[in-house]
């Protein structure tokens, strides 16, 4: 396997379970499995949410910006062969900061770093930019339930 890895949309869908209309990363690149991933998300006015948020001032809702960050972040570990295709759950989101409005025509570049992945719990962070301008950042703790279940105590039903 030649590093770093790159993923087009089909490659992303092979690694993670998010799908339209809730898949918010178009391309993932510069991936070192177990360490880091970068992503691109291109926003056009054809996105389903722009007419509603808002009709006179379309911009990307905050939760979608956070999804772009975390969907890039999870590629830092779901790109590992043994984890591909597994579902993930949020455990916590901290230190979320929004620095600018993202509007139709903007391309978001995201850089995510995995600090640790231990027994199905991933900890790390991601930052995004429009051009050189900071857009959004957050720290994440994400679980992979399939892995967590392997460590359940015996008394569990």
């Amino acid at each position: 396997m030649d590093l770093p890895l790159n993923f087009d949309i089909n490659g992303i869908k092979a690694c993670q379970r998010n799908r339209h209309p809730l898949l918010f990363v178009d391309r993932v690149f510069d991936v070192i499995p177990g360490e880091k991933a970068s992503g691109l998300k291109c926003f056009t006015y054809n996105e389903w949410f722009f007419p509603a948020h808002f009709d006179d001032e379309p911009n990307v809702p905050g939760f979608i910006q956070v999804e772009s960050l975390v969907q890039t972040f999870i590629m830092s570990f779901l790109s590992k062969e043994e984890l591909r295709g597994k579902k993930t759950n949020f455990l916590s989101i901290n230190n979320v900061k929004f620095k600018r409005k993202i509007v139709p025509g903007d391309t978001l570049t995201i850089h995510a770093t995995l600090q640790s992945f231990r027994r199905g719990i991933a900890t790390g962070s991601a930052v995004s930019f429009v051009g050189d301008a900071p857009a959004c950042s957050a720290d994440f703790v994400v679980a992979v339930p399939d892995i967590l279940d392997q460590f359940k105590p015996k008394s569990a039903p």
């Binding site: 455990l91 231990r118 027994r119 199905g120 719990i121 679980a143 339930p145 967590l148 279940d149 392997q150 460590f151 359940k152 105590p153 015996k154 569990a156």
Partner: peptide
């Protein structure tokens, strides 16, 4: 299951140990 993993991590960090899988399950 999530709380269990957080508990195991806290024990490992506090006591400077690395628990075996069988012990985590037990």
């Amino acid at each position: 299951s999530v709380g269990h993993m957080q508990l195991m991590a806290a024990l490992e960090d506090t006591f400077g140990i690395e628990l075996d899988v069988d012990d985590i399950i037990d």
